[in-house]
């Protein structure tokens, strides 16, 4: 599986593989621009994410990752260009797709005074999940939250909060999952645990996952492809192994540093 895209040059994943019929992309970003006055936070990027793929969105602070994700979610309107999820233009008709999407972000939290069960009940009802009680019990069992279900969310450790956020993100069994730093501030054991859950979810559900992360071992492990951004533009992309090979490096950490500092050979296709 190959990632398609570039600055103002969208191609389908299927076409990149020479197939005659491209599979419908779960996420399709076309010529996306977000300008704040003279500053272009996102500067004409295009890419698509096939169903069943985990794609990493990488870049230093201020590269435009979070703005890109916010536009894909429809929370921020693009200056020009489109972001489509499951065929719906998220700037204009996001409500057609929202019941099949979910997300996790360090910018949001679950209400702290509510118990885990109460929070999941509210979000489950908002998504129309049925039967909800069984779904919450299943998620709690799989995410090791059963004993915590009646504890207020504000009285959880960082690792427990992450598991609750993951339970919220999976409550509607989304076809598209947007994750912004899902393992930030977690200890290695908990982070590994979360990654395993994400791998399993993708494999079993066939969900498309767009992952913004600064954790390069995580990216190497999870991502089929990565998009590397700098100053609002896509500066490189490809499978982690290909990028490592192309840059003549040993790991994605070094590739990231090369890209972030404008060194090395990137090949925008």
């Amino acid at each position: 599986m190959r990632l398609s895209g570039g600055n103002g040059d969208e191609r389908s994943a299927g076409a990149a593989q020479g197939r005659t019929e491209a599979p419908a992309a779960a996420i399709a970003v076309t010529d996306l621009v977000k300008a704040y006055g003279p500053v272009r936070a996102v500067d004409g990027i295009s890419f698509s994410v096939p169903r069943g793929a985990i794609v990493g969105l990488l870049g230093g602070n201020g590269a435009g990752k979070t703005t890109t994700i916010a536009m894909i979610m429809g929370l921020t309107l693009p200056t020009t260009g489109t972001a489509r999820v499951l065929g719906s233009d998220m700037a204009r008709e996001r409500h057609r797709a929202l019941h099949r999407i979910n997300f996790q972000s360090p910018y949001v939290e679950m209400p702290l005074r509510l118990t885990i069960r109460q929070n999941l009940t509210v979000f489950g009802q908002l998504y129309g999940v049925r039967p909800l009680r069984e779904r919450i019990d299943e998620l709690a069992a799989s995410l090791d939250l059963t004993a915590l279900l009646d504890r207020p969310s504000g009285k959880l450790s960082a690792g427990q909060k992450t598991r609750v956020a993951l339970a919220k993100a999976l409550i509607n069994a989304p076809d598209v999952l947007l994750l912004d730093e899902p393992t930030a501030s977690l200890d290695p054991d908990t982070a590994d645990w979360v990654r395993t859950r994400l791998e399993v979810y993708r494999r079993e559900r066939g969900a498309a996952i767009l992952l913004a992360s600064h954790n390069m071992p995580e990216v190497e492990r999870l991502c089929d492809d990565v998009i590397m951004m700098r100053a609002g533009r896509i500066v490189d992309r490809g499978a982690p192994a290909d990028l490592i090979s192309r840059y003549g490096r040993d790991n994605m950490e070094d590739v990231f540093l090369d890209v972030a500092r404008g060194r090395g050979q990137g090949a925008v296709t």
Binding site: I101, E109, K168
Partner: peptide, 12 residues
């Protein structure tokens, strides 16, 4: 509670 983003991403 910084929950608005969560709500805005639901079908609400």
């Amino acid at each position: 509670s910084r929950n608005l983003g969560n709500l805005m991403m639901t079908p609400l």
